[in-house]
Amino acid sequence: MLLNKGMDLVWQIIISVLTALLVSVLIILKYLHARYVETTYARCTSSTDLSGKVAVVSGANTGIGYFTALDFARRKARVILACRDLKKGQEAVDKIKSSTGNNDVVVMKLDLSSFQSVRNFATMINKQENRLDILVNNAGALILGQLDMMMRVNYFGHFLLTNLLLGLLKKSAPSRIVNVTSAAHRESRGIDFENLKAEKSFIKTLTALKAYQNAKLGNVLFTRELARRLEGSGVTSYSVHPGAVDTKIWGEISGLFSIVRWFFQTPEEGAQTTIYCSVSEDLEGVSGKFYYDCNEAEDKSSSVSKDMDLAQKLWEISETYTGLKEQ
């Protein structure tokens, strides 16, 4: 009996020591990775002043959207945080005002899963604002089991919002539309218009991932079709892959993946390409391209995302799906 208890104690000590060693190694690796990323990741170096400009950023109360809005405020723009949760949005506004000294920062209600909310938001913007210089379609979601909501938030909501604000964007030209997408779009083999939300799949997680990939492909196709339709208008569009960023979009995925997230970029680092496409003088007159790490990265976008026939068909389907065609 005593021997068994002694062996149990020994094993507990061994497990405790190994666990402590593993945690120590992970912390060291995390530190070294953070220093590596800090010295190598691209940063938007543009000094563009946005005084007198108006910018809208969706999903700006946290993550990439927050740091994008923070940067615009530092550049003296009027910044509108388009958020589903007004309380959290106001908290973000207060932080941005305190950090930048720019008091022309506000939050407005926008729930991209509701087309009525999108219409209400667009109506208020068109009524209250005299101009719109930058529209950043940033909000995103990876929601297991709620595929319709995920498709609306990641793609359809932004499609409708952008179209409802095009008049103001054209009036304010030169103006820019930045669509935050993901490298996940490369995993989509194309969009099955009879199965837009991947609802015919029977495996919950795989279904969600497929819907997410399709939505992100939709973002890139939408960007390219916008560029084609807006050629000569002074309104330009860009799609952005921010990189692997530790944001709340991963909230429902835990377990071993939580350790992997330690090695992702911070939201501030992930926001740099979005900011670059929004303000850089280098992109004046350029439109419809895919960007990563503050550089054009057409070689990193999929061949399917360059199919302009698919882009046009998706636009037409989206007009019907969102009710835009009835406008």
Rank of each mutant, 00 (worst) to 15 (best):
residue 253 I to Q: 09
residue 220 V to N: 00
residue 211 A to C: 10
residue 74 R to Y: 13
residue 126 N to T: 10
residue 211 A to T: 10
residue 26 L to H: 03
residue 323 G to P: 10
residue 21 L to Q: 12
residue 1 M to R: 13
residue 238 Y to C: 08
residue 206 L to W: 13
residue 317 I to L: 14
residue 152 R to F: 11
residue 311 A to G: 03
residue 155 Y to S: 03
residue 151 M to H: 15
residue 193 F to Y: 13
residue 267 P to L: 03
residue 125 I to E: 02
residue 231 E to S: 15
residue 42 A to G: 05
residue 146 Q to V: 15
residue 320 T to Y: 14
residue 277 C to K: 00
residue 3 L to A: 14
residue 132 L to E: 02
residue 79 V to M: 11
residue 18 L to E: 14
residue 211 A to I: 01
residue 327 Q to L: 07
residue 126 N to R: 14
residue 161 L to A: 07
residue 103 N to A: 11
residue 171 K to R: 14
residue 242 P to G: 02
residue 249 I to A: 03
residue 273 T to A: 00
residue 149 M to S: 15
residue 82 A to N: 05
residue 255 G to F: 09
residue 147 L to V: 04
residue 217 L to T: 06
residue 78 R to P: 11
residue 117 S to L: 13
residue 45 T to V: 11
residue 88 K to H: 04
residue 38 E to M: 15
residue 64 I to C: 01
residue 241 H to E: 08
residue 169 L to E: 03
residue 161 L to W: 07
residue 111 D to W: 14
residue 236 T to Y: 11
residue 207 T to C: 12
residue 110 L to R: 08
residue 267 P to F: 07
residue 199 E to I: 11
residue 105 V to C: 11
residue 47 S to P: 14
residue 123 T to M: 11
residue 21 L to N: 13
residue 254 S to H: 02
residue 135 L to Y: 12
residue 56 V to Q: 01
residue 228 R to Q: 09
residue 55 A to L: 06
residue 311 A to K: 02
residue 168 L to T: 04
residue 295 N to T: 13
residue 165 L to D: 14
residue 44 C to M: 09
residue 42 A to E: 08
residue 300 K to T: 12
residue 326 E to T: 04
residue 290 F to W: 08
residue 182 S to H: 12
residue 204 K to I: 15
residue 45 T to M: 06
residue 105 V to W: 01
residue 42 A to V: 02
residue 222 F to P: 01
residue 45 T to D: 13
residue 164 L to A: 02
residue 13 I to F: 11
residue 316 E to P: 00
residue 160 L to G: 10
residue 127 K to V: 08
residue 272 Q to M: 05
residue 299 D to M: 07
residue 5 K to C: 10
residue 42 A to F: 06
residue 278 S to Q: 02
residue 209 L to V: 12
residue 239 S to A: 15
residue 305 S to K: 01
residue 317 I to P: 02
residue 83 C to G: 06
residue 130 N to M: 08
residue 102 N to T: 15
residue 265 Q to G: 05
residue 274 T to D: 06
residue 248 K to M: 10
residue 257 F to S: 06
residue 2 L to A: 08
residue 282 D to I: 10
residue 165 L to N: 08
